[in-house]
């Protein structure tokens, strides 16, 4: 089955992209090639979903956007700053404008929810802070507002490790809102949650993104979830972009191709033994037209 990509260029031809990756490759010190020559342009206001198997490079790609990882080759530009070669100071400036929601929430369990949300304001403040009292009152009040927005104001003075997974992720979202970001990245935000909490968290993420007119990139395992809300779907496999489509014209079966191909290989061990077979096939999903 073939997936062509007519929409990709159309998207890229829009206004000056907010995020652009040009020929980005990443090889980890242990030799794994996590990203392989990725080109991607994301305009302002887009709701993009990144799909692919575990290990396909989704998380690595996300971490390149805010400079947690630096590429081995290629260029990453975010809001006009070349993240791939930015100084620490520039990098902090970029990160301040990017909310990042993690699969494992990244909350300090022993601190209260309010304190966790307040850490989202650290980028605006100078110097280290410890404890609620060390933040200006105005920011504390703001943190309350954000907790209210994610529906957890009653838990403000509760320790974060007393919450359920879904609640923790909502606190993490409140922390990102505290940054007043222009871009929201969410790396498998619902992978460790039950279906009901997943729906709640994704719902919340999208509502605030639309309200704040943020550009959103969410990586997801579940294609159905991705198709439900995204305006654009990008599929990764083995560090390469293998699918890039307008979500409205994409059928679920097409998207499943990103996953199924690997299953086929598993069923036919000979394919694994000779990876060159894959490369010489007429590349049904490969999107780089050279």
């Amino acid at each position: 089955m073939q997936v062509s990509l007519p929409t990709r260029n159309a998207v890229a031809n829009g206004a000056d992209p907010l995020i652009s990756l040009v020929g980005v490759s990443k090889r980890f010190p242990n030799g794994t090639l996590a990203l392989d020559n990725v080109d991607l342009n994301i305009p302002r206001g887009q709701l993009l979903s990144l799909i692919g198997l575990s290990g396909s490079g989704k998380s690595t790609l996300m971490r390149h956007l805010n400079g947690l990882h630096r590429p081995t080759a290629g260029k990453v530009t975010v809001m006009g700053v070349e993240v791939s070669s930015a100084s620490n100071r520039q990098l902090r400036g970029v990160r301040r404008n990017i909310g990042f929601v993690f699969q494992q929430f990244g909350l300090v369990g022993r601190a209260t929810c309010l304190e966790n949300v307040l850490t989202g304001a650290l980028g605006r403040l100078s110097g280290p802070r410890y404890g609620v009292w060390s933040y200006p009152k105005k920011l504390r009040s703001e943190a309350f507002d954000h907790l209210e927005r994610v529906g957890l104001v009653n838990q403000a003075y509760q320790r974060a490790d007393t919450l359920s997974g879904g609640q923790m992720q909502r606190v993490a979202i409140a922390r990102s809102l505290m940054q007043q970001p222009q871009i929201m990245l969410a790396d498998e935000p619902v992978a460790s949650l039950d279906p009901e909490s997943s729906a709640q968290v994704l719902d919340l993420l999208l509502r605030v993104a639309v309200e704040e007119q943020m550009t959103v990139i969410v990586t997801l395992h579940q294609v159905e979830l991705a198709l439900g809300w995204a305006t654009r779907i990008v599929g990764l496999r083995d560090g390469r972009v293998v699918l890039d489509r307008d979500a409205t014209t994409l059928k679920q079966e097409d998207a499943m191709e990103v996953y199924q191909r690997v299953d086929k290989n598993l069923a036919q061990p000979s394919n694994i033994a000779q990876p060159s077979n894959i490369a010489t096939e007429p590349a049904p999903l490969a999107l780089r037209e050279k």
Binding site: L125, P128, Y130
Partner: peptide, 24 residues
């Protein structure tokens, strides 16, 4: 995880350490 998350909000090294490592 908390350190990476707070670092992602654009904090400096010592801000991150005080907010995430010290409470732990």
């Amino acid at each position: 995880a908390p350190r990476e998350a707070v670092l992602s909000t654009g904090t400096g090294k010592w801000q991150t350490i005080l907010s995430t490592i010290v409470p732990q």
